[in-house]
C-alpha cells in the first residue's frame, strides 16, 4: 500500500494536465485583461500603452452609464434566477410524477431551449414572440382582449422580455438537475406524506424543497454567472435599448472596448464584472453552506 505522501504526489500528477490547461486558458487572458485595465490602451494605438493605475476603474465607477448598466445587470440576473429556479422546480416536479407518460420525450422537449444558440434564440424571440403585431405573445393576449404592447420598445417591458427570453434558455438546466435530484428522493417519503394528507404543493414544499437545497445552490450559481455575463441573447433581442433599458455590463464593456476601441476601459469594466461575480458567488456559497450546516 502506497504511503499517503506518494499518493498525494501522484494525485498532483493526475491533476497537472488540467491545471496547466486551466492556467493557459483562464488565467493568462484574465491577467492580460487586468493588465489592460490598468493601462490606457486604444486598439488603434496599441503600441502606445500608458500605465494609469486604477484610473480606468475610477472613471467607470463615476460614470452614470456604468452605474446604470450595473443596475440593469443586477435586475436581469435576479429576474433570471427567480424565474429559472421556480419554473425548473415546477416542471421537474411535474415530470417526476408517476402519472406522466412518455417522460423521455417530455424531457427531450424541455431540453431543446438549452441547445439553441442564444443569438438564434434572441432573434427567434424578437421576431416570433415579442413582435407587436404578429408575435405569439400579443396574439395570445389578444384572444383574452388584452393589450398589445411593443414589448421590446418600451423601457418598462424590454427588460422583462429579456429576462423571460433568457430564462427560457436557462430553465432546462434547472429542470435537468432538479429532475435528476428528484429521482434520488425515496418514494417512501412521498408515500408517507400522502398518508399524512399532503397534496402535491405540500409535498413540493415540505419534502422536495428541503431535499433539493444543495442542488439549488448549484443551479443558482450556474444561472447567476450565466445571466450576469449575458450578452448575445440581449444583443440580438434589443441591442441594449430602448435607450439603455437593457444595456447590461457586458454590452457596456463591448461598447466601450470594441465599438469605441478603448481597450483599457472595456477591460476595466469586464474585470470589474469578474470581481463582482467572484465576491457575490463567494458570499452566496458561504451563506448557503452555513444555512445548510445550521439545518443539519
Amino acid at each position: 500500500m502506497a504511503d499517503p505522501r506518494s499518493r498525494f504526489t501522484r494525485g498532483w500528477w493526475f491533476l497537472a494536465p488540467g491545471l496547466v490547461l486551466m492556467t493557459l486558458i483562464v488565467s493568462v487572458p484574465l491577467l492580460m485583461a487586468f493588465r489592460y485595465s490598468v493601462h490606457r490602451v486604444f486598439l488603434y494605438r496599441f503600441d502606445e500603452q500608458t500605465f494609469l493605475g486604477l484610473a480606468n476603474y475610477l472613471r467607470a465607477i463615476r460614470d452614470p452609464l456604468y452605474v446604470n448598466a450595473l443596475k440593469v445587470t443586477t435586475l436581469f440576473t435576479l429576474g433570471c434566477l427567480v424565474l429559472s429556479i421556480v419554473l425548473g422546480l415546477l416542471v421537474a416536479f411535474a415530470l417526476s410524477s408517476r402519472e406522466v407518460r412518455l417522460r423521455p420525450a417530455w424531457l427531450a422537449l424541455f431540453l431543446i431551449p438549452f441547445v439553441v444558440t442564444p443569438v438564434v434564440a434572441g432573434i427567434a424571440w424578437r421576431f416570433f414572440m415579442w413582435q407587436q403585431e404578429f408575435g405569439v405573445i400579443n396574439q395570445v393576449l389578444g384572444v383574452f382582449g388584452g393589450p398589445d404592447p411593443y414589448w421590446l420598445l418600451e423601457r418598462e417591458t424590454a427588460l422583462i422580455a429579456a429576462i423571460v427570453s433568457n430564462s427560457w434558455h436557462l430553465t432546462p438546466l434547472a429542470i435537468l438537475v432538479f429532475y435528476a435530484a428528484l429521482t434520488t428522493i425515496p418514494d417512501e417519503l412521498f408515500d408517507a406524506g400522502k398518508t399524512d394528507g399532503a397534496g402535491p404543493m405540500q409535498s413540493l414544499w415540505y419534502i422536495v424543497l428541503p431535499m433539493l437545497r444543495p442542488h439549488m445552490l448549484f443551479v443558482s450559481i450556474i444561472v447567476i454567472t450565466s445571466a450576469f455575463r449575458e450578452f448575445d441573447m440581449i444583443w440580438s433581442l434589443t441591442g441594449g435599448g430602448p435607450g439603455r433599458a437593457t444595456t447590461v455590463l457586458s454590452i457596456f464593456a463591448y461598447d466601450r472596448g470594441i465599438a469605441n476601441q478603448d481597450m483599457g476601459m472595456g477591460n476595466s469594466i469586464a474585470f470589474s464584472m469578474f470581481v463582482i461575480m467572484a465576491v457575490a458567488a463567494w458570499i452566496y456559497i458561504t451563506v448557503y453552506r452555513r444555512v445548510l450546516e445550521h439545518e443539519e
Partner: peptide, 23 residues
Amino acid sequence: IPEYGAVMWGGATDYITDVYSGD
C-alpha cells in the same frame, strides 16, 4: 483620425440615445 469612432460616432450614440430616451 483614429479617435473618430470614439469621439464622433460613439459620442453621437451616447448623445442621441440619452436625448431620445429623455434620460
